[in-house]
Amino acid sequence: MRFSFVRSEVANGLRRNFTMTVALIVSVAVSLALVGAALLMRAQVDRMKGYWYDKIEVSIFLCGKTSVAFTCTGTVTAEQRANIETVLGSLAPTVQEIFYESSQDAYGKFQEQFAGSAILANISPDALPESFRVKLDDPANFEKVATALQSVQGVESIQDQRQLLDRFFQILKGLQSFAIAIAAAMLFVTVLLVMNTIRVSAFARRRETSIMRSVGASNISIRLPFILEAVVASVIGSMLATAGILATKYWVIDARLAPNLTFIPFITWSQVLAIVPVIFLAGVGITVLASSITLRRYLRG
């Protein structure tokens, strides 16, 4: 089977089947773009988790003047504070680092965060509780710390920052599942489109294929032009999907989101580029599979 002959057969097939080919390209592009989006979202969540979990602390707020928790009897005493620190110290290696933040420190941070805001005037240092900030070896070990401290005198409340983040990650995960569901549906449509395109194509060229069979052309050389037709369409579709994803990274993430949301670590170019081969493999793999199965049915040797 000579290359130039296969090439002209494929070009002819694509031209004759123009509308189907366009439909196939668009369908492949949309479904793969969605697959890519789902993969990017996963990479984004992983990256944010890695970044934020590293910074996560457990805050142990101590009793203030107005605290009502049953472990509180007015402002925490120096003795109680020392006891809490001892309990925390005994929790090593789960507890890795312990910082003490006084009401005055908290007020300083608050001033920094809300500089220029009217809210500052209403807040005095004693309205902000003093606290221990604790770094854990693994954020998942929060329960250990909570159980050890929840009934210790002088502790007003224990806050796990991870819980705040996890709610946010849950939303992202939901979005990701949604994208995967749509991508799966689109891929299914793409498979059907490939099958239909191949069937129409095989029917339009039944005379050619019957001649090929009768002169003893090998099965692969009879089927190759059809499969290559689908592959050409899927490669073009994959390129469009890739272009869409790269454009999203360049124009949406890098140009718009990243400068405005500096506290979020966005996916890097290398993470985006790692998705490209997956898109091409998925696109070409699915079309080759779908067209081979169809040809087996419609071009019996």
Binding site: V215, G216, G301
Partner: peptide, 14 residues
């Protein structure tokens, strides 16, 4: 064998 059918058919014209 199935894959040898094309070679077989090259011995005949139709």
């Amino acid at each position: 064998r199935h894959r040898d059918v094309p070679a077989y058919r090259r011995n005949m014209g139709i």
